[in-house]
Amino acid sequence: MAVNLSKGQKVDLTKSNPGLTKVRVGLGWDTNKYDGGSAFDLDASAFCLNASGKVSSDSQFIFYNNKSNANGSIQLSGDNQTGEGAGDDESIVIDLGQVPADIEKIAFCITIHDAAARNQNFGQVANSFARVLNNGTDEELIRYDLGEDFSVETAVVVAELYRHNGEWKFSAVGSGYRDGLAGLCRDFGVQV
């Protein structure tokens, strides 16, 4: 049975699931009724962070134009441009044992593509969630529903997977950004 988290909560992932080697982080969302003339295109991304909380190179930023880190241990499923249907809209698979040792944290984010030009924000997005699944069995281990706490934000750090005493933990973050993907990139050390 999945553990349901609230914003700010943390949970052991590998300690409470012995033998877990591969996980899938599924991210999903819906859009509210909106009549702005432009379709919504939300994107999942992951920033692979070192001890200083920054990417060591731009290749450690996983998104629709860079779907994998250098050794392939972190891979984005693809780019769902509509968010239609139930379930995960985009997902990222992580081979926990193969994640390079210098990556201490993986930050999972959702951004709105061309949000400023389309006059869109997370106040128009509903039912956002992140969930962690055992990639081998599809068993949902952890779920975090973001709620409707956002208004003008165009990007959200949804959750983090991080190392602690040789184990992996999951943290429900839910932190919004007003300046979208560019703001996330700047804060995490990606050159834009």
Results as ranks from 00 to 15, higher is better:
residue 55 V to M: 03
residue 55 V to D: 07
residue 56 S to V: 11
residue 57 S to I: 03
residue 58 D to R: 04
residue 58 D to G: 04
residue 59 S to N: 12
residue 59 S to M: 04
residue 59 S to F: 05
residue 60 Q to T: 05
residue 61 F to E: 06
residue 61 F to V: 01
residue 61 F to P: 03
residue 61 F to N: 04
residue 62 I to W: 00
residue 63 F to W: 09
residue 63 F to K: 12
residue 65 N to I: 02
residue 66 N to M: 08
residue 66 N to H: 14
residue 66 N to F: 05
residue 67 K to R: 15
residue 67 K to Q: 15
residue 67 K to D: 13
residue 69 N to P: 11
residue 69 N to A: 11
residue 69 N to I: 08
residue 70 A to H: 11
residue 71 N to D: 14
residue 71 N to H: 08
residue 71 N to M: 08
residue 75 Q to A: 13
residue 75 Q to M: 08
residue 75 Q to K: 14
residue 76 L to C: 00
residue 76 L to G: 00
residue 77 S to R: 07
residue 79 D to M: 06
residue 80 N to C: 00
residue 81 Q to S: 14
residue 81 Q to A: 13
residue 81 Q to T: 13
residue 83 G to R: 14
residue 83 G to D: 01
residue 83 G to Y: 10
residue 84 E to G: 05
residue 88 D to Q: 13
residue 89 D to M: 03
residue 91 S to I: 02
residue 92 I to L: 04
residue 93 V to L: 10
residue 93 V to N: 06
residue 93 V to T: 09
residue 95 D to H: 12
residue 98 Q to V: 04
residue 98 Q to H: 14
residue 100 P to S: 08
residue 100 P to H: 05
residue 101 A to H: 12
residue 102 D to Q: 07
residue 105 K to N: 10
residue 107 A to F: 01
residue 108 F to Y: 09
residue 108 F to A: 09
residue 108 F to D: 04
residue 109 C to V: 15
residue 111 T to I: 07
residue 112 I to E: 07
residue 113 H to F: 15
residue 114 D to T: 11
residue 115 A to H: 02
residue 116 A to Y: 13
residue 118 R to T: 09
residue 119 N to Y: 00
residue 119 N to G: 11
residue 120 Q to F: 05
residue 120 Q to K: 15
residue 121 N to R: 02
residue 121 N to L: 01
residue 122 F to P: 15
residue 124 Q to V: 09
residue 124 Q to D: 07
residue 126 A to Q: 15
residue 126 A to F: 04
residue 126 A to I: 08
residue 127 N to M: 07
residue 130 A to N: 05
residue 132 V to E: 06
residue 132 V to D: 09
residue 132 V to L: 06
residue 132 V to R: 12
residue 134 N to P: 00
residue 135 N to Q: 10
residue 135 N to T: 01
residue 136 G to T: 08
residue 137 T to R: 12
residue 138 D to F: 03
residue 139 E to P: 01
residue 140 E to C: 12
residue 140 E to S: 12
residue 140 E to R: 15
residue 142 I to W: 10
residue 142 I to T: 13
residue 142 I to P: 08
residue 143 R to I: 11
residue 143 R to W: 00
residue 143 R to A: 12
residue 144 Y to C: 14
residue 144 Y to W: 06
residue 145 D to T: 07
residue 146 L to H: 11
residue 147 G to Q: 04
residue 147 G to T: 03
residue 147 G to M: 02
residue 149 D to G: 14
residue 150 F to C: 03
residue 150 F to K: 02
residue 151 S to M: 10
residue 152 V to N: 15
residue 154 T to M: 05
residue 155 A to K: 08
residue 156 V to N: 06
residue 156 V to Y: 04
residue 160 E to M: 13
residue 161 L to M: 03
residue 162 Y to H: 08
residue 162 Y to A: 13
residue 162 Y to S: 10
residue 163 R to H: 04
residue 164 H to F: 09
